Simulated scan of single mutants.
Amino acid sequence: MTQDTSQQKTKSFVHRIPNPVGRPFKIKSASELWEKFVAYCDDVENNPWQVKTGSNSIAGDNGRQSNTMRQEVRVMQRAYTLYGFCAFCGIVQKWADFKRGNMKRKGFEPVIMQIENVVASQQLDGALIHQFDSNIVARLNGLADKHIQEVTGKDGEEFKFPKLSIDDINELKDINGF
């Protein structure tokens, strides 16, 4: 029995199953990532927080009382955040994990860096005009006042630790109850 070599073999069932290792990228290109970021920024700008407050006052004038109620709506700007962007896009991992997994993909590095720059810039601008809490913005952006404390000897010389003998150490143990 001879086989016709011109006929292609049909692939087995296993070859038709999608690869279970890894999952396809949710965001397929760098331009799609940027478009989603622009849509997120538009959403933040077009949907500010609204804080409603109300007050009630009773006043009397010439024997007449009046009751007034006042309601105010204060519109507050929302900050761009990488957490919010991930939630908006359906990225189910932290931004740092998303970044680590996509930095090597073609064209993603400059888009990721630009997204981080725009988010930080908007947050810092908002903190500078007291729209956003400056302490939270500093934490989100890794900004901190760092104080380095150095121990120096007399007149700024290098501090020299005293050398202790075994008797000195035992005496200190007795004094401190060790």
Rank of each mutant, 00 (worst) to 15 (best):
T2K: 15
D4V: 07
T5W: 08
S6P: 01
Q8T: 11
K9W: 08
T10P: 02
S12E: 09
V14Q: 12
R16Y: 10
N19V: 04
F25D: 15
F25T: 05
I27L: 01
S29W: 13
K36D: 10
F37H: 03
Y40E: 00
E45Q: 13
N47Q: 12
P48I: 03
W49M: 06
W49R: 15
K52T: 14
N56G: 06
I58S: 13
A59N: 11
G60R: 13
G60I: 03
G63M: 12
N67H: 14
T68A: 01
Q71Y: 10
E72V: 08
E72C: 11
R74C: 07
M76Q: 15
C86W: 06
A87V: 08
A87C: 13
C89W: 02
K94Q: 12
W95F: 04
F98C: 01
R100L: 01
G101V: 09
G101K: 15
N102L: 06
K104N: 05
R105W: 03
F108T: 00
E109L: 02
Q114W: 14
L124S: 00
A127L: 03
L128H: 09
H130A: 07
H130Y: 12
H130P: 02
F132R: 00
N135H: 10
N135F: 15
I136Q: 04
R139N: 05
A144S: 07
A144E: 09
I148P: 03
I148W: 10
E157A: 01
K160S: 12
P162R: 06
I169W: 09
E171A: 04
L172D: 10
I175H: 07
N176P: 03
G177Y: 11
G177R: 08
